[in-house]
Amino acid sequence: MDTGITIIICTYNGAPRLPETLRYIACQQVKPGVAWEVLVVDNASSDGSAELAATTWRKLSCPAPLKVLHQPQKGLTYARELALQEAAYEFVLFCDDDNWLSPGYVDLAFELMKDNPGIGVLGGFGELVFEQEPPAWMHYLTGLASGPQAITSGKTQYNAVYGAGCTMRKAVFAKLRQAGFHPLLSDRRGKKLSAGGDYELCYAAALAGYEIWYDERLRFKHFVPQQRISAAYYDRLMKEGAESLAVLIPYRLRVNQNCKDALYFNVNLLKVFIFYFKGLVMLLLTRTASAFRKKETTYLRLKLLSFVYKLYALRNYTSMKQNFRKVLDLERRLNSSRLL
């Protein structure tokens, strides 16, 4: 596997966003001698995203090559897998089609991964940039990939970083596939706001013995277009995203809580239910005048809905038990492969 870094942009109907994202990539200050490339994965777009990406890149006159791939099966997970198979270099940087990387992002990510071979996945710091002035309540919510992912740079406490702007060691993916890993989540799929594929990759990497890191110096801007600046969009984002908990909770209980059998799984799942239920009750009991000022009413309603959707997702108990067994099986296969 060649030493270098591949920037991967997976896009579905990203024509309005791709040109600016590519302009930021073309401005990367990569040290001489560091090989890099750009892969754009068109995930069943219907707006000419692939052609626009190629045309825009030619105009930017960047020395790094750009290649367009086509993944007809809708789902961000499938787009990522295709890109990982085709990437030429040891490290892969997932840049969403609305991420604007700071000039030194690629170079720093490369150096951190090269100097720290134990890192499996490395996350950065996203700063939200809105197409128009957002309502006050949007500043309180954290549904979009943004902000710090740990108190300080280094290994994360909960073994996960958001996919936007994250860098992955390609060897992690190869090791997982060798152990028979098949993602349980499709992540974003067309217009659906399903989520969680990035966290699943992180948890699987942790099971494989790699560390998940965050570095606050890796800065990028996360552009939020006008159509996403609404309570209705956030409602959909939370509702559809909560369905991923049937997969993510089993991973979390194994990776972060060290649950090794059905008994501990059930006990800790009950703790999850109590945590969500207490959060819902506390919000329902909030009756102070300041909490219900008009500008905070939307925020409180969305927070309430967030707990409702998470509690509702726990109805999938049977699926969670099955997924927990799959996580344990994956871990056993990974451990067996280390002994070979």
Rank of each mutant, 00 (worst) to 15 (best):
M1G: 04
T3Y: 09
T6E: 04
T6C: 05
G14A: 08
A15Y: 03
A15R: 15
P16E: 09
I25A: 06
A26T: 09
V30R: 04
P32V: 10
P32W: 04
V34Y: 01
A35I: 03
D42L: 02
A44H: 10
S45G: 06
S45F: 00
D47Q: 02
D47K: 11
S49E: 00
W57N: 07
W57G: 03
K59N: 04
A64S: 11
L66F: 10
L66W: 13
K67A: 04
V68D: 07
Q71H: 06
Q73T: 15
Q73F: 12
A79T: 04
E86K: 15
E86L: 01
Y89T: 04
E90A: 07
F94T: 08
F94Y: 11
C95S: 08
W100T: 00
W100P: 06
Y105V: 05
F110T: 01
L112W: 10
K114L: 13
I119T: 04
F130P: 10
F130D: 04
E133A: 12
P134D: 05
P135K: 05
P135H: 11
P135D: 06
P135L: 06
W137S: 09
L144P: 06
A145Y: 08
S146T: 06
G147P: 07
I151F: 08
S153P: 08
A160S: 08
V161N: 01
G165D: 06
T167H: 07
V172I: 13
F173N: 03
L176S: 09
F181D: 05
P183R: 01
S186W: 06
S186Y: 01
R189Q: 14
K192G: 10
K192N: 12
G196C: 02
Y199E: 11
Y199D: 02
E200D: 02
L201N: 04
L201T: 02
C202A: 02
Y203V: 05
Y203K: 04
A204D: 08
A205T: 10
A206G: 00
Y210S: 05
E211S: 12
R217N: 13
R219K: 11
K221D: 14
P225T: 10
Q227D: 14
R228A: 01
A231K: 15
D235R: 07
M238K: 11
E240H: 12
A242H: 02
A242R: 04
E243T: 15
L245Q: 10
L245A: 06
A246L: 13
Y251P: 08
R254W: 11
V255D: 04
V255G: 06
N256R: 03
K260C: 12
D261F: 00
L263S: 11
F265E: 02
N266S: 12
V267N: 03
V267H: 10
L269H: 03
K271V: 05
V281N: 03
M282V: 05
T286R: 14
T286P: 00
T288V: 08
F292V: 07
K294Q: 12
E296T: 10
Y309G: 02
K310G: 08
A313H: 05
R315S: 14
N316T: 15
S319D: 07
M320Q: 12
R325N: 14
V327M: 09
L328F: 05
L328E: 09
L330G: 08
L334F: 07
R338C: 09
L339H: 07
L340H: 14
